[in-house]
């Protein structure tokens, strides 16, 4: 059927296809170019980059900005915070939220209706920034690493996604384990978790990206510069210095002619982004699925 229609493409159709393809290529270009621009400028000699005009390729190639980034102990530390936050935060979130979701996915659980209602309210209404801030303060979470982990360990929306997935698993598998005397924890860890890899990967990816990209928590809840994640560090370098001409913010000692604060910023941006860019094409199929799983519920 399809082939026949393809063969009968009119002239108008051909023009449409060509124009459409060009539009798509332009869109791809617009999505990629800003990152490319940042990359080639960060790979250029700092002083030379000040002259501008570097659009496609480094004019005076130099890796000095990257050396400076990796030599700076503050940046290195911030990367460490981000790294641990992402690993620990993601593992804790996926484990905790999926466990609660599994318990709540059992329709016969007493009081389930009330628990679900309680969670649904949180989707539409929240206490807002200030009461949350005051709560963290009185819990002693401010300026502690755990402020990244504990408040982000659970999310009702993700719980719904987990639940939608757990529902698809045939009951027979669990029942036979139950007859053998397995308790719910055993079933969850030994049967459900191994069967749920796609949804676990999806939520892990979303959570991981959230943790890696979040700078808000570092701005609001953290004062200690040693506990800043890389995004917050970058935020302070980028945004808070724009009106004061963004110079002089990088630690002294690495400011030579081949490196400027400008190229260091760009290099930091690239290093910050690199892990995400490297990972995401491979996980694409997971997050597309996850989006759809979520949208059914949402």
């Amino acid at each position: 059927m399809r082939r026949k229609f393809l063969a009968r493409r009119t002239k108008g159709e051909v023009v449409f296809d060509i124009v459409n393809t060009i539009i798509m290529i332009v869109i791809c270009f617009m999505m990629l170019y800003p990152v490319w621009y940042t990359l080639v400028n960060s790979l250029n000699d700092g002083t030379d980059a000040m002259l501008g005009g570097i659009y496609w390729w480094p004019r005076v190639f130099s890796l000095d900005s990257y050396k400076a980034v990796f030599a700076d102990s503050k940046i290195f530390r911030a990367f460490g915070v981000s790294f641990f936050r992402t690993i620990i935060g993601t593992v804790v979130h996926v484990f905790f939220t999926s466990m609660v979701a599994y318990g709540l996915s059992k329709r016969y659980l007493m009081g389930r209706k009330y628990f679900m209602a309680m969670g649904t309210v949180t989707l539409f209404f929240s206490g807002g920034l200030i009461p949350t801030f005051l709560l963290y303060r009185s819990l002693g979470l401010l300026d502690r690493f755990v402020v990244y982990i504990i408040p982000a360990m659970f999310n009702f929306y993700n719980l719904l996604i987990f639940q939608a997935f757990f529902r698809e698993i045939p009951d027979a598998l669990e029942e036979s384990a139950k007859i053998d005397g397995a308790n719910d924890f055993y079933i969850f860890f030994k049967i459900i978790i191994p069967l749920s890899k796609p949804v676990l990967a999806t939520i892990a990816l979303f959570t991981g990206v959230y943790h890696w990209n979040d700078y808000f928590a570092g701005v609001i809840f953290i004062n200690n510069p040693d506990l800043q994640p890389i995004q917050t560090f970058l935020y302070r370098v980028i945004a808070e210095t724009t009106s004061v001409h963004m110079l002089q913010n990088m630690p002294a000692g690495i400011r030579t002619t081949s490196v400027t604060s400008h190229t260091i910023r760009l290099a930091t941006m690239i290093v910050t982004t690199a892990p995400v860019i490297c990972v995401y094409p491979f996980l694409q199929k997971y997050f597309v699925k996850g989006m759809l799983l979520g949208s059914i519920k949402g």
Partner: peptide, 22 residues
């Protein structure tokens, strides 16, 4: 099952509902 669910409920009470009360 309750041992799985209750920690989540407590988490919501603390991190969602106390701020709402706040």
């Amino acid at each position: 099952l309750y041992m799985m669910v209750i920690p989540g409920i407590i988490w919501m009470l603390i991190f969602n509902y106390i701020p709402m009360y706040g």
